[in-house]
Nucleic acid binder design. Structure first.
Lengths: 224, 224
DNA sequence: ACCTGAACACCGTTCAAGT
DNA sequence: ACCTGAACACCGTTCAAGT
């Protein structure tokens, strides 16, 4: 009692893989992936960095675990609903997860040793498309174009150097100011006439593209 | 004469931003972006790491320069051709560049301070779409879905843990062996019936998706 | 079984000093 | 003007030692 009370109360519960992963995700959410180091993570947990290696085999394993935790947050596509609404919901759900965890964007498809939640997610996506009448070949096409788009869009959105409309204006001006007037006429007009108009938000583009692809897939479903 | 001959001949031409960038790209092409450090780059050029700072303001500036050099390798989309063939050629051209320089995949749209070649490329893409009859709003849609897909596909392809068909089989087996039989039935069937069939190459999916998107854009071009 | 301290081999970058 | 050596504040990871 006295002994346990004398220790720093905060983070002195026993370490576990789950606690390590949760802490790492919080750190990456707040400060970005580049601010996540084994040493800082240890500090966050009130422990030396080296203790982490008892719960995670190295930093790569840590990242894999974090990714799988993100997939676990995404509800797997339903096998009851019709494929198109299920795939639409799932697309929006992945995007929402990547907005919560932008650091995961480049890593979701990092391939090596996917975790259980990751495999389950992919299993359900394939099951949903097969159940919707897609051949194996068409399932491969659909999977590829949908996930390519979903992750690629997230990457672009994340990389965008402006988060607010005010930033957008400043950025656009700075970008074009570095070059002779008229050197990039189409880009300049596009900025002026579209991007800088009030109400523009790049994030809004996501659904347009998702629906465009889903419609196109529906049209091609019965080919080949 | 004698003096200059006594120095190591190899890399003793004067340093310049161009030489630094070219060397950095070569290093990243060969060993991946994570093997590119200021110290190794210096060594490659026969110079101390600190000398690089005379030609590049920091590592971020180095990376921006490298990206712009990759864009400079990509021929800008023609404004004479019809928009669809021009955009198709350009999509394939970007993909080819990313196959030559996989390390660039996550960085092409990194936003901050794009270089002249990058801006020119984007200017031409917008010009091509506008010239093809796309409204500003539709140009934004088209740009977003095309680039999202192109970069997203490259990211997935790069992340794929197998480069050869033999690897694919080994990988698929290892992946599924870690879990109870039947836990991922759709994934397992998909692997068995499609991915592991001879002749399968994920890279081939790229063109299918590109054409699917271009067709869908054509159909929607005159809306809104 | 879990945690630690010291150490190793790396990073990017600054700064005063050299030519 | 360009290059260097030494230094600073970081990394991931190993390993022997502690409890």
């Amino acid at each position: 009692m006295a002994a346990s009370a004398s220790r720093k109360q905060e983070s002195r519960e026993r370490l576990s893989r789950e606690r390590v992963l949760a802490s790492a995700i919080r750190l990456a959410d707040v400060g970005g992936i580049e601010s996540l180091s084994m040493r800082k993570l240890g500090e966050e947990l009130g422990v030396e960095a080296m203790s982490l290696y008892n719960h995670v085999s190295n930093k790569d394993d840590l990242l894999n675990g974090m990714i799988d935790a993100v997939f676990a947050e995404i509800e797997s596509p339903s096998l009851e609903e019709d494929w198109k609404t299920a795939m639409r919901t799932r697309g929006l759900s992945v995007r929402a997860a990547l907005l919560r965890h932008p650091w995961a964007t480049g890593l979701m498809d990092s391939g090596t040793t996917p975790g259980a939640a990751t495999l389950r997610h992919h299993d359900r996506v394939i099951g949903c498309l097969r159940g919707g009448g897609f051949s194996f070949a068409m399932t491969a096409h659909a999977f590829s174009v949908l996930d390519g788009y979903i992750y690629g869009f997230a990457m672009q959105d994340k990389a965008l150097p402006f988060d607010t409309p005010e930033d957008t204006g400043a950025m656009a001006a700075a970008m074009l100011a570095r070059f002779p007037t008229g050197e990039f006429p189409f880009l300049a007009a596009f900025m002026r006439e579209h991007v800088l108009k009030p109400g523009y938000d790049y994030g809004d583009e996501f659904e347009y593209g998702l629906d465009l692809i889903l419609d196109a897939l529906e049209r091609r479903r019965d080919e080949v």
